[in-house]
Design a protein around this nucleic acid. Structure first.
Length: 153
DNA sequence: GCCAACGTTGGC
DNA sequence: GCCAACGTTGGC
């Protein structure tokens, strides 16, 4: 089992939005970066756990824990001309963008980016690397345990 | 709203 | 295949 961190802008899908959805599940739509896509397509497995991270907001940070609950499948928004995520170069026969569904496990005590940066145990997290822009990043078991066991305690 | 970093595009 | 231009991300 692997651990991940997945960024979402709360103005688009917040932890509370996820909690309010049918089955508390959401397709992780809108990823348009190949590295992040490849994590979903190639590395994620049903049952993997992920931090649900709020980005692009006043206080960025981890807002909850979710779980991968589907195998990869095409992101429907890439085929919708009305969607901001529309991709004219993709086609249903040869979809470019795949996603997985995630289900809420729990809303956690909020762990701000500032606190994450302050923990030397987390110095190697890709999230904290300078100018990191990747919306899905791996989390090590040690980092996961430190965040859930210490920062969320 | 600024700006640094970085991925993508497209001309050559 | 190089690389400049451009667009986007995301913290501040």
């Amino acid at each position: 089992m692997r651990y991940w961190l997945m960024k979402s802008e709360p103005a688009e899908v917040s932890i509370d939005d996820l909690a309010a959805r049918p089955g508390q599940t959401v397709p992780w739509f809108g990823v348009r970066n190949y590295q992040a896509r490849n994590f979903m397509r190639d590395a994620m497995r049903v049952g993997d756990l992920a931090f649900f991270y709020h980005s692009g907001c006043a206080e960025p940070g981890i807002a909850g824990i979710c779980q991968v609950c589907s195998t990869p499948y095409p992101d429907a928004t890439q085929f919708d001309p009305a969607s901001p995520y529309f991709d004219a170069k993709s086609s249903p026969a040869n979809p470019r963008w795949l996603l997985v569904d995630v289900r809420l496990i729990e809303k956690t005590p909020y762990v701000s980016l500032r606190r994450l940066r302050g923990a030397s145990e987390l110095a190697n997290m890709p999230l904290l690397a300078r100018a990191n822009r990747l919306s899905i990043t791996p989390v090590s078991a040690a980092e996961w345990q430190f965040i859930t066991g210490t920062l969320m305690a």
